[in-house]
Computed example of a mutant assay.
Amino acid sequence: MPTGSYVVETTRTAEVAAGEQTDLWSERVGTYQTRMDYKYPRAEVFRGEMIRQRSDTYQVVTWHSDQIEYVRTPGLIRQMPDPDYRLLFPLSGELRLRQDDQEVRLTPGMGSLFTLGAPFELRHGASLRGVIMSIPAQEIDGPLNRKAPLATGLDLTKGLGRVVHSVMRSLNEERDHLTTPQFDAVCDRVVELLRMLACGDDRPGPPGQLTEVEAMVRRYVRDHAADPGLSGNSMARALGWSLRQIQLALQHVGTTPRDLIREERLRLVRERLLCTDCTHMTITDLAYASGFSSASAMSTAFHRRFGVSPREMRHKAR
């Protein structure tokens, strides 16, 4: 198994006695997700399996089980707040998600992006095989400039939705062959695509043109993040658009050229901190090699973004 903070874990209720199966499942779900109430039609026997992939930033769980209902009540939210989001979709069977007086019926090819910070009910039958990805709240609330649940259905059968679906399935299939930087990098791109997918219908103006500008800008920033001279003006000159066009395209997904550049540089630093080939680089080396003007500026921004210092993240990865 790859070293570092990336871990793959498997839980099977068949490995414990019949009377202990629901207890095991409830304990694992509570640990992997958050505190919930559970309704088991057959409490004496419960068949289920879940495969968990996780790093310090993201988690993906693929599971199948007997019929069950999960409930997150206002009381549980007060006792154990959790503002983070989940991408949820079935590979087979059907999921029913109810949140904010709206019910979404999810069948294969449909997904939902919803928050654990609001009450919900989730139920499915015994034929269900599903995927649920944990996404930090700041990845959704800030970029989309909203805090309301997004429990509406997402079409995963075409366009960006189909790309997300394909990447998520591949992420599970290749779970034993990934490193921490690789897992986080793939999850970063999935979240980026989800943001585009979730706000695509809200774009004013010519959607195709804005999407094209935004996609080109993101690729350019990703490829040139380590350049200390990268700025909105330099991007505009290189791509042949006006600065105003770039600002408008990024504004509709809740970011700015400066914020996007900083975000990509921080992701670059994180990948290098977790990379075994970069252990010879000091924190100052990493800062300058990733486009930051100083180690202190990088460390401050890094701690604000990931909740730990660069040194602490490097220590965790060893």
Rank of each mutant, 00 (worst) to 15 (best):
G93P: 08
D84N: 15
R86D: 06
R98G: 04
Q79N: 07
E103L: 12
L88W: 11
S92V: 03
G109S: 07
L97Q: 04
G93N: 07
F89M: 10
R86H: 12
G111M: 03
R86N: 09
L95I: 11
R98D: 03
L97T: 06
L87N: 07
G109L: 06
E94S: 09
M110I: 14
P108I: 13
P108S: 11
M110C: 12
L95P: 02
Q102E: 13
F89H: 15
V104K: 01
F89P: 13
P90T: 00
R86F: 08
Q99E: 05
G111H: 06
G111Q: 09
R96N: 05
S92K: 14
E94C: 06
L95C: 00
L91H: 07
D101L: 10
T107I: 15
Y85W: 15
E103W: 02
P83M: 03
V104E: 12
M110L: 15
G109K: 01
D82I: 01
F89W: 13
L88T: 09
P81S: 06
L87T: 02
P108V: 12
P81L: 04
L87Y: 12
D84C: 12
L88Q: 09
L106C: 06
L87M: 07
R105M: 09
D100N: 10
S92F: 08
L91G: 14
Q102L: 11
P90V: 01
R98H: 00
E103C: 10
P81K: 04
R96P: 00
D84T: 13
L95E: 06
E94L: 08
G111E: 09
G93A: 06
G93R: 03
D101G: 13
E103D: 11
P90Y: 04
G111L: 02
D82L: 12
D101C: 08
P90H: 05
P83K: 02
L88G: 11
S92L: 08
L87Q: 04
L97N: 04
Y85E: 08
G111P: 10
R98Y: 00
Y85L: 09
R86E: 08
Y85Q: 07
R98T: 15
D84W: 13
L97P: 12
R105H: 09
D101R: 08
M110T: 15
R98C: 06
P90K: 04
E103S: 14
D100W: 00
Q99N: 01
T107W: 09
P108N: 11
P81N: 03
R105Q: 08
Q79A: 14
P90N: 03
